[in-house]
Design a protein around this nucleic acid. Structure first.
Lengths: 240, 240
DNA sequence: TATGTCTATTTATATGATAAAAACACACGC
DNA sequence: GCGTGTGTTTTTATCATATAAATAGACATA
């Protein structure tokens, strides 16, 4: 019986989280676009799980802003405006739908607003721990340059270190968006931009932060993201 | 029995959401600082609700990044870094703890990064609908000036309109933070800053957006938030 | 010391029953 | 005709209890 359920549902080890992931993907990719969302009884039957599992998955989706549930009316999908776009799960699901340059562009508009400010904040008020984190991130980028570390991972580590270093937890919240944006844009930037230029630009950010020069840190970070945005614009232009 | 439960628990009409709110507040305000988080059985007994209610509340808190649950290990509170700080519930709970100038300052550091960029984006690429939204928001501010609308509500409406108008859903996500920041800082700014100056500054933002001048819109918005940050700095200085 | 096994604890899942909310239809009275 | 109330029905909300699964920790064993 249990084996049967597991086989028919195709959800992972943890049924609740498996169903959460499946429903999340389906909602975000528009699988319920023109029809009403299933009732909890229908979901239970369709996926071969108990009502508890269904309800807990729905509750988590509700907590992330994707659903609402009311007696008699049923469960329904919320407008995109109320989705929690900074949630790691929601971001992941968002990328499962067709790759869109528009989404990548929106990511980077956000980065252009956040990261220069975060770099300035880090330069102005990072403590020793934050500075060490940034140094470690940059060291990884240098190691990657020498082929001793993964380029993408090192890049992400450096950018996240800057988000954290300023000590403002709200800036640290952007870790998932930034990591996602970097992972996504690597498809475009990979092999197009020379890695040396990239390292130099990142080195400028590091130097400015270490010199406690907020203005220079901001400008250097702005330059990095500006380059990425130019690349995206050129790519979308070329694709047309 | 049911009445007894309701009376003893003090949760609202909806037990699950009531418990969610109660636990969320307790977690954020540090009520479980030095002790382990209760097991689901303990929570059920303490609050006089069934395990389903407890589990669903815990699952929602998990979805918001506040908890994790594993068999045998139990449920435990996650580090603040993994909390979903842009979630409306989490923000609300955050404000329940002692009022802190530091938090208000962090809010506005974020606003300083986001809102000028959002204003520039709105100036550059808002469609007719977005522009109409901004006009409506500004009209409310003018009405408030004449005593025909609530000052705070109008202010919030104007700022939210700008976040939305650019068409980037990630900027629109900041509605709750911005609304919360405005509601919080009104305690400080109220009666200190003359409302006329405020209206003029907001008018400059509106004019720049309508003139499709991103640079001017950005600068005008920066000025507004800069004023607020100065006020906060002065207040925290005076308080010392 | 390392490794495997047993046990206890806690979450995970299932199931079936009852309560509550709300959309809808319908009858009623004005 | 038209509002108003009332009952019916559908769906979520809640409860209670039972069983499964996972894993930390103790203990035994090599």
């Amino acid at each position: 019986m249990t084996d049967n359920d597991d086989a028919s549902s195709g959800l992972g080890r943890n049924l609740t989280y498996g169903l959460l992931d499946l429903l999340g993907r389906q909602i975000v990719t528009g699988a319920f676009e023109n029809r009403t969302f299933p009732t909890e009884a229908e979901l239970s039957i369709q996926h071969g799980v108990s009502r508890s599992v269904t309800r807990e998955a729905v509750k988590m989706l509700t907590a992330k802003g994707l659903l609402t549930a009311r007696p008699r009316q049923g469960t329904s999908i919320q407008p995109v405006a109320s989705w929690n776009l900074f949630d790691a799960d929601v971001l992941r699901w968002l990328l499962e739908r067709k790759f869109s340059v528009e989404l990548l562009s929106q990511f980077n508009q956000l980065r252009a607003a956040i990261e220069p400010a975060a770099a300035a904040l880090a330069a102005g008020s990072a403590d020793d721990k934050g500075r060490a984190l940034i140094e470690a991130g940059f060291a990884r980028m240098e190691a990657a340059e020498r082929g001793e570390d993964d380029v993408l991972d090192a890049d992400i580590a450096f950018h996240l270190a800057i988000l954290r270093a300023g000590g403002n937890p709200f800036f640290a919240q952007f870790r998932d968006v930034v990591a996602t944006a970097l992972r996504t844009s690597i498809r475009l930037t990979n092999r197009i931009v020379g890695r040396t230029a990239d390292l130099a630009a990142h080195g400028a950010v590091r130097d400015a932060i270490m010199a406690r020069d907020p203005r220079a840190a901001q400008d250097a970070m702005r330059a990095i993201i500006g380059d990425v945005m130019d690349l995206i614009a050129r790519h979308s232009h070329a694709a047309q």
